[in-house]
Amino acid sequence: MANLKVKFCGVEFPNPLVLASGVMGVTAAGLLKTARAGAGGVTTKSIWLNEHVGHKNPTMIGTEHYFINAVGVPDAGIEKAQEEMAKYLEKHHVPLIANVMAKAVEDFEAVVKEVTKLNPDLIEINLSCPNVEDEFGKPLACSVIKVAEVVKLVKSCTDKPVIVKMSPNVEDHVGIALAAEKAGADALCCFNTFGPGLVMDLETRMPILANKVGGVSGPGIKPLVLKMVNDIYKAVKIPIIGTGGVITGNDALEMMMCGASLVGVGTMVYYNDVAGFAEMTTQINGWLDEHGITNIEDIIGTLQR
């Protein structure tokens, strides 16, 4: 069996499969269940300083080919995060990434300072949710200038490694990645969901999601993400969490070969449940053994292009 450990921003992950933000991440109990099921790291649902109410249901739709969601980033605020993160860290199976969210650039200061006190292994800043545009306008991750501003600010108020959750819905993803790196980001999470997109009901001629539109994930986006991750990998020096459409262990291997050091796994839970983490690890091990590779880190960025 190959060594699946990945060192990422100085933090050791037992395997490269990281639970992506927004899935099973409301409470410590959910995160720990996922960690026990075999995730190599877990990410909280986005933490706000104060309570934020999300969208009404339906918030998620799944099909064979894609998944779409518009949950609207609900959260109870920092007090709940204090309790839940402390509870997670008591057990601390695998590294914890705290995902934080705020309305505008300047609002990140307070929430990042508070979350830093809770001692997660890394902090991920959510600049890219595509289903709250009615409330907050275009995501911060769509602007080179705003990404640089927020990264500089966040880096000045935490000593934790900072991951930027990137948007795929931009004209120049490489330009944004370079801006984040230059501003001091320690890593990039590529990507948030695509779109927004729309799923309608033929009978009523109405969008099904209560928010009408939502972010698209699942198997259908994998080729788009692989290409963009590879573009960014070739341009930056900081490590990447490749996220989007990874359902199987082979998908995760492809993501790493395209340049990801860690692989974000979210929508997989819809298709294969949390048990899918262990199945993915088995498939990854099988492939590595078959190809005589003893360290998974050796495959990162090995796409022959």
Partner: peptide, 11 residues
């Protein structure tokens, strides 16, 4: 939220 095991709200 979802009803099918993804969101983690009912853990």
């Amino acid at each position: 939220k979802c009803g099918f095991g993804v969101c983690g709200h009912c853990c």
